[in-house]
Lab assay of single mutants.
Amino acid sequence: GFTKEQQRLGIPKDPRQWTETHVRDWVMWAVNEFSLKGVDFQKFCMNGAALCALGKDCFLELAPDFVGDILWEHLEILQKE
């Protein structure tokens, strides 16, 4: 899971503390893990605080249908851990 990747890359547990690099690493991991298609990494050029502050509607505009939902749900789980 993502926990191993977080440990390997030194990504903080709390997504709100992520840098732009951490956000990119997470999106890249999720794309590979969940076989997601059509993700534009440029749209995720922000730090974790900005990403978490978007709200669901704005977040879902960053990625194609269903893909955004998967990313959003995973981000929500990470914020609760």
Rank of each mutant, 00 (worst) to 15 (best):
A30M: 13
E5C: 09
I11H: 05
E5W: 07
K4Q: 12
V31F: 03
G38W: 04
Q7Y: 09
F44R: 00
N32P: 04
E76W: 09
C58E: 15
N32E: 12
K56I: 02
A30K: 05
D14R: 03
N47I: 02
P64C: 04
D57T: 11
R24D: 01
D69S: 11
E61S: 13
T3I: 14
V31A: 14
K4A: 08
D40G: 03
A63G: 06
P15F: 00
V23F: 01
P12T: 02
F59L: 06
N32K: 15
L51S: 00
F59A: 01
D65W: 05
T3R: 10
K4N: 14
K56L: 03
V67W: 04
I11Q: 05
E61I: 02
S35Q: 15
N32V: 09
E5Y: 12
R8P: 09
H22Q: 11
I70A: 09
L60A: 13
P12L: 03
L71F: 02
A49R: 13
A63D: 01
G55W: 02
L78A: 06
V23P: 00
K37S: 12
M46A: 03
L62T: 04
F41P: 15
G55H: 11
N32F: 05
R24Y: 08
L60H: 11
G1Y: 09
D40N: 08
Q7D: 14
L60G: 10
E33N: 10
A30P: 02
E81D: 14
K13A: 12
G48I: 00
A53T: 12
I77C: 13
V67C: 12
A53H: 07
C45H: 15
T3F: 12
R16G: 09
L62M: 10
E76D: 13
R16S: 10
E20R: 10
A53G: 13
R16A: 13
Q7G: 11
W72H: 05
I70P: 06
D65A: 14
A30W: 07
M28K: 13
V27I: 14
T19S: 11
L78K: 03
R16W: 09
D14E: 08
F66G: 15
G55T: 15
E33T: 11
A49M: 11
E33I: 04
R24N: 11
M46W: 03
K37A: 12
W72C: 03
N47A: 07
D40I: 05
Q42S: 13
A49H: 11
E76N: 15
W72E: 00
T3G: 12
G10M: 08
W26K: 02
F34Y: 13
L78M: 09
I77N: 15
S35T: 12
G1A: 10
F2L: 05
G1E: 12
L71V: 00
K13E: 10
